[in-house]
Write a protein that binds this DNA or RNA. Sequence first.
DNA 1: TATGCGTGATAGTAAAATACTATCACCAAA
DNA 2: TTTGGTGATAGTATTTTACTATCACGCATA
Lengths: 312, 312
Amino acid sequence: MAQKMPTVKQLKYFVCVAEFGTFRGAAERLGISQPTLTAQIYSLEKALQLTLLERSRSGTELTPAGRELLPNARQVMEEMHGLLDQAALINQGPSGTFRIGVSPTVGPYLLPHILPGLHQTYSSLKLYVRENMPKTLELDLLEGRLDLVLIPLPFGTSRLTSEVLFHEPLHLVVPEGHQLGKLKQIKAEHLREQNILTLESQHSSYHRVEAVCEELGANIARDYEGTSLDALRQMVMMGVGVAFLPSLYIHSEIHQPQGLSVSQIEELQLHRTHVLAWRKNSPNRSFYRQLVELIRSLVKANLSDAQLFFDD
Amino acid sequence: MAQKMPTVKQLKYFVCVAEFGTFRGAAERLGISQPTLTAQIYSLEKALQLTLLERSRSGTELTPAGRELLPNARQVMEEMHGLLDQAALINQGPSGTFRIGVSPTVGPYLLPHILPGLHQTYSSLKLYVRENMPKTLELDLLEGRLDLVLIPLPFGTSRLTSEVLFHEPLHLVVPEGHQLGKLKQIKAEHLREQNILTLESQHSSYHRVEAVCEELGANIARDYEGTSLDALRQMVMMGVGVAFLPSLYIHSEIHQPQGLSVSQIEELQLHRTHVLAWRKNSPNRSFYRQLVELIRSLVKANLSDAQLFFDD
DNA sequence: TATGCGTGATAGTAAAATACTATCACCAAA
DNA sequence: TTTGGTGATAGTATTTTACTATCACGCATA
């Protein structure tokens, strides 16, 4: 026997009659006609199979059953208002948990510099940060497991969209005492026959590095592919080869380059480009574009000494 | 800007889509058509001014806002089910707080004998007992401050209705050593010129006693009207006069009549009639009639030695 | 490349629910 | 007897809910 479910509006009507004590008075307060109120209370009573109110000429009284259910009715209304309040809060500004995927070669060295600013601007914003390989992150975003990803190019399928955050130079790192470290200015040709250490092939952003070095006659040390930037750095220090490390990593991890020499090959302009990406039809895309602007300005402000550069 | 309030049904739809992940699947589970579901979710989103779900060809995902509000939606539904459960409980049997007024000359001596039985039969029944003068109780019932009253006759206005519970004899109580206490059988004529103590005039049930005694030539001690049965008893013991005390009082309070002699004047048949009364249009009147039957049988069972008598 | 399939959205229509105005029924007080 | 205040009833209009049919889109498969 499926009864109609009462509506919150009916409960509101019930509470109002209970408080006011007459149908006419309550109807006036509610801004509806008295017969409407009568009908809705009847409907409620029918749904519950209970008589909630005792009608008399001098007004209306709660029955014992009505008295028992009045707190329940109030509770339902309160919860509904809780939901409405929460919705209004979200409407004021982004709220809720946004799941963001970051590449391990950039996330740890970037987020500490922008998260405080993000929280300051959007105080109700919760970020659930997940680190993974860029290709995996891309798939997670595509299949809805993530809302955003912050990764280096290359990237992209047609159902995703992205905005450039900033460009991050890749610096040549050689061991202390290495011949390249003694040069005032390193030229592209100096890379010929050098052993170039690189990240394993999942890190697509390093593919351009490899291509450029191969063109210059350098050797890509495929037997020694690093699994992280730290691994690359260790191998350089051990003399296995030389490597290109990102600005943010150097800025974050290599304050005093002990055992290492860092330099830039101006003519090559090796760099990575980092983007924030989301699904094209994401309802929050407008907010995400704001996020891009905010991240850019936070990076400019907090990482001005990291040699990053921007599009504008 | 008055937005429409979401309905619990809409919230239920939202939760189901969130759980199922496609509109079509959820619609099927809910037993409605998919366009109905689409329309209702849109209506909900419009009411909240939020996009709760991200639609795609492969299904539907919660937005961060949707994720934030999902627990709220569930909570509203839970509270509504709490109300429905409570209503179902009340439907199974009377539940809630019934406010019953009792006369001080009967309540304390009767209720201990029937309340356990009442609670055993109606476990969810709560009785709020209030003692007061019968006239006051009658008015409280009339004006909806009480649901029931248990009082001795006389009683009644046309908007109230009552059922007889039982009849309670009034016994003559005289001090030890009094001449009437030595008689094997007291006759009506023995009352002539006796000083009859009575309750103050608010206790209407004593008016008949007064009238009968006056007809027999006894003196109603109006200067010594008792405010309670205990007061009457004390005055009798002090030799101020004699009094008629109800059976229940004697049964309850006078186990060994020390200092007192109790007897019955058969030819007078003095007694009080106790009724349970309620408003004629009370929605629970059917239940109250059941209550009458139950009280009667409890009285019969638990107060068989109190010399009460019944109508059937 | 064409086709099929699964998704949610749209359009038109019917049914149900909500809401109104007008009036009735009842009863207590003046 | 009349008046006034109460809730209920009746008829009608409006709004909302719900349906069927179909469209739009895009991916996978042959």
